[in-house]
Write a protein that binds this DNA or RNA. Sequence first.
DNA 1: TGCTGTGAAACCGTTCACAGCT
DNA 2: AGCTGTGAACGGTTTCACAGCA
Lengths: 209, 209
Amino acid sequence: MKTRRETASEATTHRLSLLLRSLRVVENEGIRTISSQELARRFGLNSAQIRKDLALFGEFGVRGVGYRVPDLKARLLTLMGLDRTRPVVIVGAGNLGQAMADSRNFNGDSFRVVALFDVDGRKIGGKTRSGVPILDASQIGIEVPRLGAEIGVVAVPAEAAARTVDALARAGVKAMLSFAPTPIVPPPGVTVKTVDLTLFLESLSFQLG
Amino acid sequence: MKTRRETASEATTHRLSLLLRSLRVVENEGIRTISSQELARRFGLNSAQIRKDLALFGEFGVRGVGYRVPDLKARLLTLMGLDRTRPVVIVGAGNLGQAMADSRNFNGDSFRVVALFDVDGRKIGGKTRSGVPILDASQIGIEVPRLGAEIGVVAVPAEAAARTVDALARAGVKAMLSFAPTPIVPPPGVTVKTVDLTLFLESLSFQLG
DNA sequence: TGCTGTGAAACCGTTCACAGCT
DNA sequence: AGCTGTGAACGGTTTCACAGCA
């Protein structure tokens, strides 16, 4: 099996996630085998692209037949590291941070929000509606390793984003999702994905004319 | 002036937003004129790309000199439709919807959240912490035109996303930001930008290995 | 036969490099 | 002289088209 993970573009990883979702759908329908063309037709994808994306990581299909659904799904789950539950911490217990802590999106089979951090003394010691504890942000260096958190969500004001990223990185977090509308220069070995909601709104405004 | 808006890629509109931010910074420093090279150097961009992006919409600079900062900023604001305040409505008064309604990102000079909509009778008639009214989702067709909302935010569960998009579209909303983790096929003439937080988490998981 | 896996071609966005204007 | 605006080169990604295998 070839394993050239280093070559997977962002677009490819994005499509693999969507592919996994599609596989869940067809699996629920009891379909055991499916061709790339059928997947493409049903979910609005391109069949060659499905095959090319998968080819980056090995040979998953059977010529003349297609893909065995449970098999491919299991291999994708493993490949993407979604075959276990990763602890997530959120820094910033404002509206957005608490919304995510209680969200089903962040608390499925693959992810679980184990703690929030904040600097506001009135919030520290409390819990979100669904029971996630709010801890003191100054304890990130102690609590994050204790909780085994692998992913950090940065939901603090723009001014605090850089130092939050640093604190999480020092605590061993290698992957972060930032909602701060400011560019982040991640420390070496750390991946930060920024979701800038202002930018999305501005794009919409632009295209409204 | 050339106006070939139809050719602007998503990447270009994204960069124009960032360029506008950069211009605000240099304007605050009292700089009146700046070259594309200086902008590139200071904000980690590529000078040729700045010029190419701008060239799609006309000639903004002065050869041998650079760009006049207030001038370029004003023209970008107009170009992107950010020179006025657009009313925004949010459908789904859950944690995420309320968080956005109260967020500074959604309530600046260019955007203002004027109402939330929900189907939950206990929420309808109430207000968010910052005072945005929560209205009955069945009244979208009446209230959206009355409020003059141009942008809609879809913060409902995945199952309700398609019908929410339709309801907003029928009410005349031409641009939407969806947080539902499901693909949307927008009606003709409507733009829907989907921000799928699950996908971001999965990308991070993938790259953690 | 019918599909996957994959070279080759087409496409698109980015970067280079310079002609042309101030 | 110096910078913009832009044609040309480049690099990466997507799509095509088919060889090869079940």
